[in-house]
Design a protein around this nucleic acid. Sequence first.
DNA 1: TTGTAAGCGTTATCAC
DNA 2: GTGATAACGCTTACAA
Lengths: 342, 342
Amino acid sequence: MNSKKTTIHDIAEKLNITASTVSRALNNNPRISEATKKTVLDMARSLNYQPNNLAAALRKGKSQLIGVIVPTINRAFFSSVIRGIEELANKLDYRVVVSQSNEDVDNEIATLNALINARVDGILVSIGKNTKQFGHYQELIERGIPLVLFDRTTNEISTSQVVIDDFVAGYMATEHLIKQGCKKIAHITNYHKVNIYKERYRGYLEALKDYNIPFEKSLVLEGNMQLEDGRECTKQLIASGEEFDAIFSASDYAAMGAMQVLKEKNIKIPEEVALVGFSNEPFTSFTDPPLTTVDQFPIEMGQAAAELFFEILNSTKKKIIPQKTVLHPELIVRASSLKKGK
Amino acid sequence: MNSKKTTIHDIAEKLNITASTVSRALNNNPRISEATKKTVLDMARSLNYQPNNLAAALRKGKSQLIGVIVPTINRAFFSSVIRGIEELANKLDYRVVVSQSNEDVDNEIATLNALINARVDGILVSIGKNTKQFGHYQELIERGIPLVLFDRTTNEISTSQVVIDDFVAGYMATEHLIKQGCKKIAHITNYHKVNIYKERYRGYLEALKDYNIPFEKSLVLEGNMQLEDGRECTKQLIASGEEFDAIFSASDYAAMGAMQVLKEKNIKIPEEVALVGFSNEPFTSFTDPPLTTVDQFPIEMGQAAAELFFEILNSTKKKIIPQKTVLHPELIVRASSLKKGK
DNA sequence: TTGTAAGCGTTATCAC
DNA sequence: GTGATAACGCTTACAA
């Protein structure tokens, strides 16, 4: 039905030159005269030529495609990181293919294989919460496929990574609450399998220590960091009868759950309980009161990850020394933690 | 550095058979004996063979890749639609490549070309707000590349599409407000270039008419449907001195902006002004009061779009008759529009 | 500056 | 059932 697609051979034929000349002209090869370049380009346009990147990729052994795996794109944080990656990649004429693992290990492996089979030139990944084995990533490195980790990383594979300083972030959040006069600060965190939560927790502990606030194990709640988990943790906390005057949640969603429960119980925020979340998801500025949170600079994170990626890709060395970029977080103070007169 | 990748030729050589047999065995061709299939599969595994989809795609003329273009992935609505598309696509062994147009026409065209050059087997797209020319899409159809539109569609190109019944949605939202006793219902909408906003507006008008409520042009505000625009529109509305007892915003974000301004002016929601948004973005259930909104069943929309897509792809007919799937929206009633005693 | 020819890894077609 | 061969559309030595 549709006329056959134009190839460089069609252009060559029309112009009475060879396909290689056409190829070189289209690729702006310096050894081709400006005159032929122009005629080729014109003919290409008039025949509505669309290069077959597949063929080029096959021939060159590289696809100009880079794969990104994230737990979900349905988070402002991740979609912003992706935008950051795309910015640099597109500038360098690379396309970005995004896949979601949905926090599922099998899915993560399947999606990884699919990307490899699609011959991406490398992969950037934020590891799922439940992924405990990293063999599939280790294999990539051994096969010489560039790999960069971001945000949800692990030290079990030796490759470049980008994170924010989650320790400092946890410290800042806790310190802020302390400076607001809070003395009994609860913390909602994940089972410490994932680096980021472990670090935020360490920051929390360190701040307590530095300000001589006794650590209470009963104030540390563990959950899966979704809204519902935040609700559960907060209900438990209240039911436990344990006194608390602040909650630092390592996730905005869990913080939102906490806010809901506190409001349902008519506990005033921030007067009775101050609240701090994590990630600066857009909705945090819409809540009532607006939620204090930590900005992770996702776009910058994406850019940094892409930079490390292209460093590996363009490296001629056999052995690549893994780099680690650490971004500095920023506390966004809003009404949920601002006590009057402070 | 890494040992050369294994190809079907390597497997063939080891097994003293030909590459074609290997290819057939791997593709589970019925004319290959079970015995050879097994030995080939075993050898493939032990050599850690990874098929080169690029080469297969080049030879077969199809890539098993489908492209999706959305204005932004940073919206729960769009990322859910994408998930819906992926569900069906992955089941059929297709990969989904997502690109963002960022509501920019040039970007939309560039990204479209990039996908075509990457040899996707077809494209699903939600058109950017500012796109007024559709030549680049028309061209696709003429070239026989399957194209499906979803949500942000246009009737200017003759191809399959999936939408929700925005007219009914607009009607339902307005009717709901009327039944709550509202008589002066403002409407925040987009300059009616985009189908969806036009339809929601039509629904608004129709409901007013059916309930004999006089239409007031001054109650219709136009903006770009972001939070800031919602704020602006609401400020204007208040400044105009025009009386109003409800706002129906055709976007959750603009509704959020309206809510902020109303609260800043100490206007009680819903007692003095009832508020309804559109899209059921997750944050709408977090606001105070929670926002009444319209659910668009994004996952179902994605699935429906993928279904129409594969219908076109698998059609052997020269001329494909465009299908249109219309999903039924659902009003999610929350406190922002629920008057006491109703 | 341009042409020739080989090859990237598959699969389709035709043999046997 | 399996083998031989060509071809998908492009790039790139090597030649000229």
